[in-house]
C-alpha cells in the first residue's frame, strides 16, 4: 500500500462508530524500515494523535478501524510504549534523500508499505524507487540511504 492511498482516510472506532481522526502521516523507524504508527489529524484530543499499527483492528477500503478512541496516544506515550521516534518533522514525504556519501538523489514522493506488519518496502522518490532496507537514518533534514541503492528504476 502507498502512503498516499491511506492518507486522508478516516479512522473510526468499532465501539462507538465515531470518527477518531483522519490519517495524516506515518511514523517510521528507519533502523527497522518499519512504519510503527499513523499520525492523525482531527482527533478528539489534538495531542493524542498517534495510532500504533498494533492497535489497528482493520484497514478497510473506506476507513481505518480501531477499538476505541483510547487507542490513540500522545507522542510521549507512544515513545514510552515502544521506544520509537515519534517526533515532529520525521515524515518521509517531501524529504530530500541523501546517500551516505553525501550525494542528493531526489526527494521522497511516497512510500510502499505492508499495512499488516508496517514493513516499508520502498521509498518512491523523484528519481526512482529505493528499497526500504537501504534506509540508514531519517532526520529532520533528510533521509539517508546506502550508497548504490539509489538507482532503481520506477516501477509502474
Amino acid at each position: 500500500m502507498l502512503f498516499s492511498e491511506l492518507t486522508g482516510r478516516p479512522v473510526m472506532t468499532v465501539a462507538e462508530a465515531k470518527r477518531a481522526g483522519v490519517v495524516d502521516g506515518f511514523v517510521v523507524d528507519p533502523a527497522r524500515a518499519t512504519v510503527v504508527a499513523l499520525r492523525l489529524q482531527k482527533t478528539p484530543d489534538s495531542k493524542r494523535n498517534l495510532l500504533s499499527l498494533s492497535r489497528i483492528r482493520a484497514i478497510g477500503p473506506d476507513a481505518v478501524m480501531v477499538p476505541d478512541a483510547e487507542s490513540l496516544r500522545t507522542a510521549e506515550e507512544a515513545l514510552a510504549e515502544q521506544a520509537e521516534l515519534a517526533g515532529k518533522g520525521l515524515d518521509l514525504p517531501d524529504k530530500p534523500v541523501l546517500t551516505e556519501r553525501g550525494e542528493e538523489t531526489g526527494t521522497v514522493d511516497d512510500a510502499h508499505f505492508d499495512p499488516e506488519t508496517g514493513a516499508l518496502h520502498a521509498l518512491v522518490t523523484t528519481e526512482g524507487e529505493i528499497p526500504g532496507r537501504a534506509m540508514i537514518g531519517l532526520g529532520t533534514y533528510a533521509v539517508v540511504v546506502r550508497a548504490g541503492s539509489e538507482s532503481h528504476p520506477v516501477t509502474p
Binding site: S4, E5, G8, R9, P10, M12, A17, P61, D62, D109
Partner: peptide, 18 residues
C-alpha cells in the same frame, strides 16, 4: 457502514495527484 467516507473512500490504486 452507512457513513460515506467522502472522496478518499475509494480503494483506487492510483492517486493522480501523487
Amino acid at each position: 457502514s452507512g457513513e460515506r467516507a467522502g472522496a478518499a473512500g475509494q480503494p483506487g490504486r492510483e492517486r493522480p495527484e501523487a
